[in-house]
């Protein structure tokens, strides 16, 4: 018995992590769920109003537009970022010196704060004073003022910001692939493309899943870049759900209703990551290198 006790550390070792998680994640979530059933403008105490916020949410056309926009963002950012990040990552995994030097340039956006990135792009794309106005083929294109185009502009900026991070994930993962597999494949006569699709890509599967979960959940909470770059505008053209929550809560001071939106976001984020991990068998955590 004494021996088995020493096998594992005591459960109390968990206490700091659990305390932290409880105080800064679970407790706020519980409070937000409570607030979503109240009406509170910041004065005095929240007043319980039953499901009023929830029935309002169901009828709120702007919230549904925001949700559709959030999902569109999610899909677009994934479609843009994944292939680019994977290709650069696999390329950067090579040990050639020029690749190491160039990679460090690719990772540069990682060093910039979100606010700096948003302000930078806002200045570059400004229709009156921006750098794009000096380019003959982009002259007159209003990247931030056109309600159709602005969605893609924001996707571009967010991708520019986060591709380096995902590239880093792919680079690390690609370096984990045993060299012997490629040697064997070369002996069997497989070319570069064949090697990529039959060795690299399958072995990157779990990295794809990790990176996908991060992107999906990330786009549910993307907020700072859009707030600074467009403020959700023009009009509501880029008002995604987190921004709608912020404006409702901190401009309109309707904390109860904003909490209902927050709960919806919480469910969306948790649901997505659960769905992705279970649909892909990520949680089985099988080794991909059995027998290596």
């Amino acid at each position: 018995m004494a021996v088995t006790r020493q096998d594992r550390p005591s459960g109390w070792y968990l206490a700091p992590a659990v305390t932290f998680f409880g105080a800064f994640a679970v407790l706020p979530m519980v409070l937000v769920v409570y607030l979503s059933f109240t009406s509170w403008n910041g004065f005095g105490f929240p007043a319980l109003t039953g499901a009023e916020n929830w029935s309002r949410l169901i009828e709120d056309g702007r919230a549904w537009d925001s949700l559709r926009l959030t999902l569109l963002f999610m899909v677009l950012t994934w479609v843009v970022q994944t292939p680019i990040a994977m290709l650069i990552g696999v390329w950067a995994a090579g040990h050639q010196r020029n690749r190491a030097v160039l990679s460090s340039f690719f990772f540069l956006p990682l060093l910039l704060s979100t606010a700096a990135i948003a302000l930078l792009w806002a200045a570059v794309l400004d229709p009156n004073f921006g750098a794009t106005q000096a380019l003959p083929f982009l002259d007159g294109v209003n990247f931030l003022g056109n309600t159709e185009l602005v969605v893609y502009t924001v996707v571009w900026v967010i991708s520019w910001q986060y591709i380096p991070f995902h590239t880093l994930l792919y680079q690390a993962a690609a370096r984990q692939v045993p060299q012997s597999l490629y040697e064997a494949a070369t002996l069997d006569g497989a070319g570069r493309y064949r090697q990529f699709f039959t060795i690299t890509l399958p072995l990157l599967k779990y990295t794809v899943i990790t990176s996908t979960v991060l992107m999906l959940v990330g786009s549910v909470t993307t907020f700072d870049t859009i707030l600074i770059l467009t403020g959700g505008g023009p009009g509501t053209a880029t008002r995604i759900l987190p921004l709608h929550m912020y404006i409702t809560g901190f401009s309109g001071f309707e904390f109860g209703y904003a909490s209902a939106i927050a709960v919806l976001l919480l469910l969306l984020g948790a649901g997505l990551s659960l769905a992705v991990t279970s649909a892909t068998g990520f949680r089985k955590m099988q080794s991909q290198q059995e027998g290596m």
Binding site: N41, T147, P234, G252, E254
Partner: peptide, 19 residues
Amino acid sequence: PADEATEMLTQLEQFFLGN
């Protein structure tokens, strides 16, 4: 009031855009 003002500003932006 803050909630009415916030909604009005949103409506006004849409109005200027022709939406």
